[in-house]
Every structure is written in structure tokens, then in C-alpha cells.
Write a protein that binds this DNA or RNA. Structure first.
Lengths: 132, 132
DNA sequence: TGTTGACTTCAACATTTGTTCAACTTCTAG
DNA sequence: CTAGAAGTTGAACAAATGTTGAAGTCAACA
């Protein structure tokens, strides 16, 4: 071996590896670690080493951001995960995020429906507004 | 009358009125106008006057932000509205926003499902990772 | 040994979404 | 007419989400 990148010694994924796997920039990987979305061990030489679930966390986080969750909220959600999460625990987290997103969409739909009741949504009540 | 606030002369809602109706700060109302979420006429004295759909636009915008749409995206969506939108046109816009939000949630769900196939989601493939 | 590439931290910058303040103008009530 | 409430602009600040660059460290290979 040693022709292509030698995979991180000291057991764990490097920043670049996680970045490549998750499709974000290395700077973003560091950013997510600082904000608790992912966790890292350190090597003797102070380099980060991530467990293999790191890139998955980032992928989920990116999608969660797309539906309005903040990095902080996502980090807090992931906080419920133990160091060695079981697939089933992961599913619970995923469900939680999806549910939160769906609730926000429902809130949006309900609000729009509420505004629509009576046949008007955001229409200009010209007649009413200009009444004496 | 004339005891409580007299509603803006020169036909239209003032910044404060829209702010009160929509539940945001006056500064936010000006912000949304600058970014095209709402539009204003100006009085002879250069004050903003909003049509009565302004607060509704803001309410929808706030909820749309909660599901991940940016102010710019929302403004672009509202751009499709004519100056005097009919309720039906409003419904189309509302549908568009809801649909966009639902698509994002679907993307999230599909991605999670894809990651879950094979029984693992984000679990640590310790065995695999440490294989020689 | 030395240089090369990947890593480290820290600071600065950029964008989005607002808020706050100062200085000035306009509107409305009395 | 005049005082005070509310409006105007512009600049500065703030938090969230990153990116970029400088300066230094570390490990591996020739």
C-alpha cells in the first residue's frame, strides 16, 4: 500500500476523510465538531480522529438544516446518543428529526388554513377597509 | 373615534400597524420590505403604506423560514403575485411553499431511509473498519 | 535529514437575518 | 402653532453558519 492515502493511523477517521465521506469542506467538519454535532478523539499528536458515524451525522445534519433545524438543535438532538450508538438508537434520533420537521410543516399548513377560513387568505378587503 | 390610534391616512397600513398585525418588530417590517417580501407605497411625506395583505405575507414568511426557506426564496415566491392578488392566487403561492417544505422533508426521509438500508444507519462498522 | 503533505489554532472575512441608535422629518392633537 | 408620537435613513452591532489564510506542528518517505 502507501500509494493512495494511507487511512489514518491511531484508529479513526481524519478530518479530510470525514469531509470526503459527508460531502462538506474540512472547515465545516471542524465547525461541526466545535458545535457538538460530531465528536472526536485526539491522537498523541493532537489530531482529530472520528468514529465512523461522523459522516452520517453530518449528512443528517445538513438535511435537517434544510428543513429549518439549527446546528444547535441538531447537536442537542445528537447529544442523546451514547458513544457507541446502536442502529435502533440512531433510528430514534432520525425519527425525532423527521417528526420535528413534519410538525413545522403542519404548523405552516394549519396557519395557512386558518388564514384562509372565510374564503379569504391574504386578499385585500378593499370593501371593508374603505367602509366609513 | 380618534381616541385610539387613528389608522394611517393616505390609504394603507403603517409600519407599526403591520408590525402589530403580524407579530414582528417594526424593524423587521422594514427589513422584509427591503428584501422584497412585502411592498410599500410611499405617502407624500415619504412614509411607507402597506396593502392589507402585508401582515399575512409576513406571517407566511415567518412560518416558511421555520421550514428552511430563506427570505430571498420567499421574496421570489411572492414575486409571482400581482399587485392585487386574488385569494386563488394566494392559495397557489401557499401551496407552492407547502410543497417545497414537504419535498425537503421527503428528501430528509429518503436520505435517512437510504442510509438505513442493510440494517445499519450510522452504526460503527467496527468489524469492517478493522478488517485487514 | 529534510521536505512534503496533512494536520493544528486563531483571526479575519462573508452572508443571512435582524436589532439598535442617532439624527432628522413628518404627522396629529390640542 | 407647537409638542410629542411615529416615521425616515444610515451605520453599527449581533448571532448563526461557514470559509480563508497565516503560522506552526507532526509524521512519513526518499
Amino acid at each position: 500500500m502507501s500509494v493512495t492515502t494511507v487511512i489514518g493511523t491511531e484508529s479513526g477517521l481524519t478530518v479530510s476523510e470525514v469531509a470526503a465521506q459527508s460531502g462538506v469542506a474540512p472547515s465545516a467538519v471542524r465547525f461541526y465538531e466545535r458545535h457538538g454535532v460530531i465528536r472526536a478523539q485526539r491522537t498523541a499528536g493532537n489530531q482529530r480522529r472520528f468514529a465512523s458515524d461522523a459522516s452520517c451525522r453530518i449528512k443528517v445534519a445538513k438535511l435537517a438544516q434544510r428543513v429549518g433545524l439549527t446546528v444547535k438543535e441538531i447537536a442537542e438532538t445528537f447529544d442523546a446518543l451514547p458513544p457507541q450508538p446502536q442502529p435502533e438508537e440512531w433510528s430514534r434520533i432520525a425519527d425525532h428529526i423527521v417528526t420535528e420537521a413534519e410538525q413545522r410543516v403542519e404548523a405552516l399548513k394549519r396557519a395557512i388554513a386558518a388564514m384562509s377560513t372565510g374564503g379569504h387568505l391574504c386578499d385585500i378587503d378593499e370593501a371593508l377597509a374603505t367602509m366609513p
